[in-house]
Design a binder for these strands. Structure first.
Lengths: 209, 209
DNA sequence: CTGAACAGGTGACCATAGTCACCGCATTTC
DNA sequence: GAAATGCGGTGACTATGGTCACCTGTTCAG
C-alpha cells in the first residue's frame, strides 16, 4: 500500500527525513480489522510492525490456557517480532488486534542496518524493550503475589485507561483468557467484587468504582 | 581498581580498542564475594555492571515471597541496571552474587553516548534484552502452565547446566525462594520426585536422573 | 417462529499448594 | 557439656481456584 511520508511522521515525529525516505521505499502500510491474529507462535518474521493507530494485544498460550502479556498501542512496536526478525527465530507469542489497526511494516532484513544508522529507530526499540521488560515484570509479580480478586479488580482499571472508556463491555470469557483463568472464576469473583462495592454492573458493561 | 585493557578484552572480544580505552578511563572493576547483594529494589543506578566472571542471580520479591527471574553469567549484563540507569528510574528487582564475581562497572552517564558510538556495545545490550525477554517469558509460562513438581524437576537441571555440577548441594529454603514457594512444599515435592525415581539423594546433595 | 449458539449464573466437588505446629538431628557457640 | 541455631521431615488443616454439570435468558439465522 502506498503512503505519505508526512503521515508516518505525524505518528513518529522523532524519525528523521532520511529514515522516513528509506521506510517509504522499503516498508509498507497495512490496515487490519479488529479481532484479527497478526502473529502466531512458531511463525518466522519477515516484517516488523509498528502500530501507527489502533491497539494490538499480545498473548502467551498453550492448548488449554492463555495469558495477556501487554498491549501495543500507537507509536509502539512489537519486541517479539523485532527480536525474532533480527535473530531469525520463531515467535513465542501470538498477537491479535483489539481495535481496527494501522500497521507500518518494516522489512526485518533492513533493520539491522537501520538501527545502526538511525539513532531515533534505535531509541524506539530500546524504549520498547524497556517498556515490555517492565510490563512482563508486572505480569510476573501479579501472577505470583496477587490473588484473583485483586488482579480482576486492577485489570479493568488498566483497560479503562487504555481505551478511554469508563464503562467496559467485556465478555467474561475474554477476561478469563487475559488473566489466564476460567470463565466461571471470573463470574464468581466479579460477583464478589460487586458485593464488596468495588464494581457495578451497568447496561452496556461494567463500571469500576 | 586499576585494570588491564587486555583482561577486559579477553572476556568481551567483540569490543573494539577505542571502546576499551574509554571503558578503562571511565569504568572500574569490582570483586564481589559470594552471597552479597549488589542491587536492591528502589535503588537508583550510577554504574551499570557487566559480569566478567562469576554468577549473579536476579530476583523479584515482596515481604513474604520472592522469585528467581534469571541468572547473569559471564560476559552478560544486567538489563534492569541498564534501563534504570538510562531512564534514571529506580530498580524493581534485587540481585545477589551466587559465586565470587568480577564486575566491570560502566558509568550510567556515559552509556547513552557509548551505545550510539560503539555498535558492539549496542549489540550487547540488544542481546541481553532479547535474552531476558525470553527468560521472563519462560518464567511466566512456567508459573502459569506448570505445577510445582514439574517446575521443581526442571529447576535443578537448569541449575546443573549453569554451574557445571552433577550433584547439587542446595538448601530447601533456597530452592523455595527461587521458585517462589515455601520450604515445606519443596521438602514434600522433592520426596515425591525421589519416590518417582526422578531424583536421588546423595551425600553432598541432590542428583538428577 | 424455532432452534442453535452464546453469555452468564450457580452449586458441588476436588486438587494444589500454602500454612501451622511440631519433631528430630546435626552443628556451632558459649 | 549445654544451649542455641539451622535444616529437614511430617501430619493436619485450609484456601484458592480449577472443573463439571447444568440451567436460564438473549440473540440471530434460517
Amino acid at each position: 500500500m502506498p503512503f505519505e511520508i508526512a503521515e508516518i511522521k505525524s505518528y513518529l515525529p522523532a524519525f528523521g527525513n532520511e529514515l522516513l525516505a528509506e521506510i517509504a521505499a522499503a516498508g509498507s502500510i497495512m490496515e487490519v480489522p479488529e479481532g484479527k491474529e497478526i502473529l502466531r507462535e512458531g511463525q518466522y518474521i519477515k516484517t516488523v510492525p509498528i502500530v501507527l493507530l489502533g491497539l494490538v494485544k499480545v498473548f502467551t498460550r498453550t492448548e488449554e490456557k492463555e495469558l495477556l502479556l501487554y498491549y501495543i498501542g500507537s507509536a509502539q512496536s512489537c519486541i517479539m517480532s523485532f527480536s525474532a526478525g533480527l535473530t531469525n527465530s520463531p515467535s513465542r507469542i501470538f498477537a491479535i488486534t483489539e481495535e481496527p489497526t494501522t500497521l507500518l511494516l518494516l522489512p526485518a532484513a533492513k533493520l539491522n542496518k537501520w538501527i545502526k544508522q538511525y539513532p531515533a529507530l534505535n531509541e524506539l526499540f530500546y524504549q520498547q524493550y524497556n517498556l515490555r521488560y517492565t510490563e512482563m515484570l508486572n505480569t510476573i509479580n501479579s501472577l505470583l503475589f496477587e490473588r484473583m480478586d485483586h488482579r480482576l479488580h486492577n485489570y479493568p482499571q488498566e483497560k479503562s485507561k487504555l481505551k478511554g472508556e469508563k464503562i467496559l463491555n467485556l465478555r467474561h470469557k475474554e477476561i478469563a483468557a487475559e488473566l489466564g483463568t476460567a470463565r466461571e472464576v471470573i463470574t464468581r469473583v466479579l460477583k464478589k467484587l460487586e458485593q464488596e462495592g468495588k464494581i457495578r454492573h451497568r447496561p452496556g458493561g461494567i463500571e469500576i468504582i
